[in-house]
Design a protein around this nucleic acid. Structure first.
Length: 592
RNA sequence: GGGGUGGUAGCUCAGUUGGUUAGAGCGUCUGCCUGUCACGCAGAAGGUCGCGAGUUCGAGUCUCGUCCAUCCCGCCA
């Protein structure tokens, strides 16, 4: 039973040794008089030869059976060496065979090529088989190494890893929560923690100074390729630190992770981009900077234009913006229509465009432009033959968002045509900073915190809290990589008076609600709260990127489907009447 | 809650205008084979065309509903 080696270990150096290996049957090649079995364990594959009295027994083996063998390490004949295998120079001449578990035929191929194409519901139903595939095994290994690298880094920087409760109290202003009924307190509920935000700030008051946690978080929102109902954050909080300190700390962590996992040297510091510039240039607060096609503002140019749609937008304090989808003049009508649909869903009236083909501007709107306007467009957008220009005229933020989305979609169209390469191993990290502290929620008719209500205002903007809350910038920062938000955080408010002001005067949360939800925190801050700040960073998303996959399900051992079900264990399920009674719960199932 | 894509053999897929007995590759099973490593050769089995209605002389194919997976919008302080 005891293994002397693993299956990627034996080489010519072990010739003649009697060894014991165990693992799964990767394949059986039966030649009648001689049988070859590829034996696989976590580390690799070794060829085992059966040509003795064990032949008949070996012939009964099926793929994925678990066996143990004892045998002698032998040289392979020169012509039979397998250069594709680290153990390809040797094989084991088996003298003993133990069948631990004879496997049934797997429901899908456990190879990388075949397995990747299998429907995901089947992979998830038999996740234990899916995880045997080399690619998935590698993903688990990468996640382990990345997580260990993070722990080692924060340990070396003097951090304590502290666990905080998963069972917290309900804080309904954030994401929808998973509620947990209390047996002991009838009619009352815990909520599974959306993030350890409040606890980590309290830990700062407690004098921990440097905290981190690989923290499980729960949010009852709809799932996506990059969103699961439970996910893992690298959660960090530090006392006596400013924004620059956080940037340096976290760049150090990412540098180490990329070195440890990919042996890649990330250049630091990362570029920084103000929120306003990100919107103006890329139309999103998480720009993909692997390609240009930047947005250009033409509000000044079209203020007095004959084209009334543009001129009236500017007159109404809106913006006219455009970008050059370089080399996309061969766009099809169907693609244009699809882009228009997306633009309309973002609130655009339409999506004006100019196709530049054979030196001619083909466009329904170009007849409204003067020569001077055309010259200015050509200059600022660097218009050349073969280009495609898109315009948006709308309130500033909306115009940015429309073109920001169109820019990304055009990039995909260019990738499809082979005109643009978006390499997954090009690591364009950046910090997006200077977010507005509050944004106006049109539905609610009030201001809401852009990040969360504990974010400190930029010091020189503090005076604007009373006069112009919308103009106040927060000390908030996001880490962005190739168009994906990987994490974010802020320097926090550490003075109870300021925190109370934000709650009551700016966010207009009633005093009794503030007291019941955050009273303990405001109270804590009265007893010596250090200035502090932190960050929360998506471990699953980071691992997906490190593995070169777009779905975090590929780096989570047992993920849920988009309908939030576990297809293997089959959850969720109904529970017994007894359980419900004990929890003082009645269920009301809506009629179908 | 909304939109897109997909669901046909164990797996991945094809299936023409609605028309005879629904096909292929891989896998599986049986037999043969002492140097294979995607072994080979010969043969065989294997189908509720996701499910339910409807249109039709006739439905894998058309219509409606529904379920599942996936991608996206909303949502994710």
């Amino acid at each position: 039973m005891k293994r002397t080696h693993h299956c990627a270990q034996l080489t010519k150096a072990n010739l003649g040794a009697t060894v014991s290996l165990a693992g799964w049957v990767d394949s059986v090649r039966d030649h009648g008089g001689i049988i070859f079995v590829d034996l696989r364990d976590r580390e690799g594959v070794t060829q085992v030869k059966f040509d003795s009295n064990l032949r008949a027994e070996a012939a009964q083996l099926k793929d994925e059976s678990v066996i143990g063998i004892v045998g002698k390490v032998e040289n392979r004949p020169d012509a039979m060496v397998n250069r594709n295998l680290p153990t390809g120079e040797i094989e084991i001449d088996a003298t003993e065979l133990t069948v631990h578990n004879l496997a049934e035929t797997p429901p899908f191929p456990l190879t990388d090529v075949g397995g990747d194409k299998v429907n995901e519901d089947l992979r998830l139903t038999y996740r234990y088989l899916d995880l045997r595939r080399p690619k998935m095994r590698k993903n688990l290994a990468v996640r382990h190494r990345a997580t260990k690298s993070v722990r080692d880094y924060f340990d070396s920087q003097g951090f304590y890893e502290v666990e905080t409760p998963a069972l917290f109290k309900s804080t309904p202003e954030g994401a929808r929560e998973y509620l947990v009924p209390s047996r002991i307190h009838a009619g009352q509920f815990y909520a599974l923690s959306q993030s350890p935000q409040q606890f980590k700030q309290i830990l700062m008051v407690a004098g921990v100074e440097k905290y981190f946690q690989i923290a499980r978080c729960f949010r009852d929102e709809d799932l996506r390729a990059d969103r699961q109902m439970e996910f893992t954050q690298i959660d960090v909080e530090v006392s006596f630190i400013d924004r620059e300190g956080i940037y340096a700390l976290f760049e150090g962590m990412l540098k180490k992770v990329w070195k440890d996992v990919l042996n890649h040297d990330l250049p630091t510091p990362f570029p920084r981009l103000a929120y306003k510039d990100a919107m103006n240039r890329y139309g999103v607060d998480k720009p993909d900077t692997r390609f240009a096609m930047e947005l250009v503002d033409f509000s000044d140019l079209f203020k007095t234009s004959n084209f009334k749609v543009f001129a009236s937008t500017v007159a109404a304090h809106g913006s006219v913006k455009a970008f050059n989808a370089k080399g996309l003049a061969d766009v099809t009508q169907g693609e244009i229509t699809a882009l228009e649909e997306v633009a309309k869903s973002l609130g655009a009236k339409g999506l004006a465009f100019i196709k530049v083909e054979n030196g001619e501007w083909k466009s329904p709107i170009v007849k409204f432009f003067t020569d001077a306007e055309k010259a200015e467009l050509t200059k600022r957008l660097n218009i050349e033959n073969g280009d495609l220009i898109f315009f948006a005229a709308a309130p500033w933020e909306r115009a940015c968002a429309i073109l920001g989305r169109a820019r990304l979609d055009c990039a995909q169209l260019l990738v499809k045509r082979g005109k643009l390469a978006l390499r997954a191993d090009q690591w364009n990290f950046l910090w997006v900073v200077d977010f507005p502290l509050m944004s106006y929620d049109e539905e609610k008719g009030s201001y809401a915190a852009t990040h969360h209500p504990f974010t400190a205002p930029v010091v020189e903007d503090t005076g604007l809290l009373d006069t112009d809350p919308k103009a106040v910038r927060g000390q908030h920062y996001d880490v962005v990589l190739n168009g994906m938000e990987l994490g974010g955080g802020s320097i926090r408010i550490h003075q109870p008076a300021v925190q109370e002001k934000v709650f009551k005067d700016v966010l207009k949360i009633p005093a009794d609600v503030v007291e019941s939800r955050f009273g303990y925190m405001l109270n804590a801050f009265k007893y010596g709260a250090p200035p502090h700040g932190g960050i929360a960073f998506g471990l699953d998303r980071m691992c997906a990127l490190l593995c070169g996959t777009t779905s975090i399900r590929d780096v989570i051992a047992f993920p849920k489907t988009q309908k939030a079900q576990d297809l293997m264990a089959q959850s969720p399920t109904p529970v017994t009447a007894k359980q419900l009674k004990e929890l003082h719960i009645q269920t009301v199932i809506p009629p179908q």
